[in-house]
Lab assay of single mutants.
Amino acid sequence: DWEDIVRFLRKLFELGEEVVIGDWHNHHREEIKRLIEWLEKHF
């Protein structure tokens, strides 16, 4: 279910905002944000 995936990604992203998950999070933050925005537009 796409909504569950979007919710999971958003939760992960919000957690990442508070607890910076090292370089991985910083590197992928923009991609995650773009992916969430893309999914919201399409689903």
Rank of each mutant, 00 (worst) to 15 (best):
W24V: 06
E3Y: 10
K11E: 03
H28C: 11
F13E: 00
R7H: 04
L39V: 07
E40V: 14
E18K: 13
H25D: 11
G22I: 09
L12G: 00
L12A: 02
R29Y: 13
E30W: 10
F43W: 12
N26Y: 05
L9S: 00
D23W: 13
W2S: 01
R34W: 11
V20H: 09
I36H: 02
G16L: 15
E31F: 15
K11C: 13
E17I: 15
V6S: 02
D4K: 14
I36D: 01
V19S: 09
K41E: 06
R10H: 04
D1P: 14
L15A: 04
D1I: 14
F13R: 02
K33H: 06
E17Q: 14
H28M: 14
H28I: 15
V6F: 15
G22W: 07
L39D: 00
N26R: 08
I36Q: 02
F13H: 01
I32G: 01
G16I: 15
E30C: 13
E3W: 14
L35P: 00
I32R: 02
G22L: 04
L39R: 00
L35D: 00
H25R: 05
I32F: 12
K11Q: 09
L9N: 00
D4V: 12
E40L: 15
E37H: 07
E37R: 11
I36L: 05
H27G: 06
E14S: 07
W2N: 01
K33D: 04
W38I: 05
E40S: 13
E40M: 14
I36V: 07
L39M: 03
E18F: 12
I36S: 02
F43E: 02
I21F: 11
I21R: 09
E17P: 13
R29S: 12
V19G: 12
F43M: 04
I32S: 01
G16K: 07
W2A: 01
D1F: 15
D4N: 10
E14C: 12
E40D: 09
L9T: 00
K41Q: 07
H27W: 13
E30Y: 04
N26T: 11
D1H: 11
E17R: 14
V20L: 13
L9M: 02
R29E: 06
E18S: 13
E3I: 08
I5H: 01
E31L: 15
F13T: 01
R10N: 03
R34K: 11
V19N: 05
W38A: 05
I32E: 00
N26H: 13
H27C: 12
E14W: 12
H28Y: 14
H42E: 06
R7I: 04
E30T: 10
L35I: 06
E40K: 13
I32L: 11
F8R: 03
H25K: 05
D23S: 06
E37F: 07
D23L: 10
F13Y: 09
G22T: 06
H28A: 14
G16C: 14
H42T: 08
F8M: 08
R7S: 05
R29M: 08
R34A: 07
L35E: 00
G22H: 10
H28D: 05
V20R: 05
I32H: 03
R7E: 07
H25T: 05
E37N: 05
E40G: 08
E37Q: 10
L9F: 07
W38C: 12
E30L: 11
R29D: 04
R34I: 09
D4L: 14
V20I: 12
D1E: 08
W2F: 07
H42K: 13
R29H: 10
D1N: 09
E18R: 11
D23H: 05
E40F: 15
E18L: 14
G16Q: 05
W38G: 02
E37S: 11
V6D: 01
D4H: 12
D4P: 09
R34D: 03
K33L: 10
E30P: 05
D1Q: 08
W24R: 06
N26I: 09
H27L: 11
R10Y: 14
E40I: 15
R7D: 03
G16V: 15
I36P: 00
K33P: 01
K33V: 09
V6K: 08
E37D: 07
R34H: 09
H25I: 15
E31Q: 11
F8Q: 02
V19I: 13
L12M: 03
V6P: 01
F13Q: 02
I32Q: 01
L39A: 04
R29V: 10
E31G: 11
H25M: 14
E30D: 09
V6N: 02
H42P: 03
G22F: 03
E37V: 10
V20P: 09
D23E: 05
E3Q: 11
R10L: 13
H27P: 07
I21C: 14
W24L: 09
F13D: 00
I21G: 08
I21A: 11
I21H: 12
L35C: 11
F8G: 01
E18D: 09
L15F: 12
V20K: 10
L9P: 00
W2Y: 03
E31K: 13
H27D: 09
L39K: 00
F43L: 10
H25Y: 15
V19P: 04
V19T: 08
I21T: 10
K33F: 12
R7M: 04
F8I: 08
W38Q: 04
K41A: 07
R7T: 03
E30F: 09
D4S: 13
H28E: 04
V20D: 08
D4I: 14
L15I: 07
V19D: 06
D23V: 05
I32P: 00
I21W: 11
H27Q: 07
F43I: 08
F8Y: 07
H25Q: 11
W2E: 01
L12V: 04
L39N: 00
K11D: 02
R7V: 02
E14Y: 06
H27I: 12
L39G: 01
E40H: 14
E37G: 11
L15D: 02
L35M: 06
F43S: 02
L12K: 00
K11T: 07
L12R: 00
V20W: 12
R29Q: 09
H42Y: 15
I5E: 00
E18V: 09
L39C: 08
D1G: 11
L39W: 07
H25F: 15
E14A: 12
I5A: 02
D23A: 07
E14M: 13
F8N: 02
G22Y: 02
L15Q: 02
E3S: 11
E18M: 14
L15H: 03
R10K: 08
F13W: 12
L35K: 00
K41R: 12
W38S: 04
E40R: 13
R10S: 04
E40T: 14
E17C: 06
K41G: 08
E30M: 12
E18G: 09
F8S: 02
E3H: 07
L15Y: 05
K11A: 10
K11W: 15
L35R: 01
V20S: 07
E40A: 14
R29P: 05
R7C: 13
R10I: 07
W2G: 01
R34V: 10
H27V: 08
V19M: 10
E30R: 10
V19E: 04
L9C: 04
I21V: 10
R7A: 06
D1W: 15
E17Y: 15
I21L: 10
H42F: 15
E30N: 06
D23K: 04
I36E: 01
R10F: 08
R34P: 02
L35V: 06
H27T: 08
D23I: 11
E31N: 09
H25P: 13
D1A: 11
V19W: 08
H42V: 12
E14N: 06
V19Q: 07
R10D: 01
G22S: 04
I5N: 00
I5Y: 04
I21Q: 07
I36R: 02
H27E: 06
K33E: 08
I32A: 03
E30H: 09
H25W: 15
H25A: 09
I36T: 04
F13A: 03
L35A: 04
G22M: 06
R7K: 11
K41S: 08
V6Q: 03
I36N: 01
W24K: 09
I5F: 14
H42L: 15
V6L: 13
E37T: 09
H42R: 11
E3L: 11
E31T: 13
R10V: 04
V20T: 09
E30I: 09
E40Q: 14
D23R: 03
V6M: 11
H28R: 09
L9H: 00
L9I: 04
V19R: 03
I36A: 03
E30K: 10
L9G: 00
N26K: 14
D4T: 10
F43D: 03
W38M: 04
H28K: 05
R10P: 00
E18P: 07
V6A: 06
F13G: 01
W38T: 03
R7N: 06
I36Y: 06
L15V: 04
I21K: 14
R10T: 07
E37L: 11
E31V: 12
K33A: 10
H42N: 06
L12Y: 03
E3T: 11
L9W: 04
R10G: 01
F8L: 07
I21S: 12
G16H: 12
D4R: 12
E17K: 14
E30A: 10
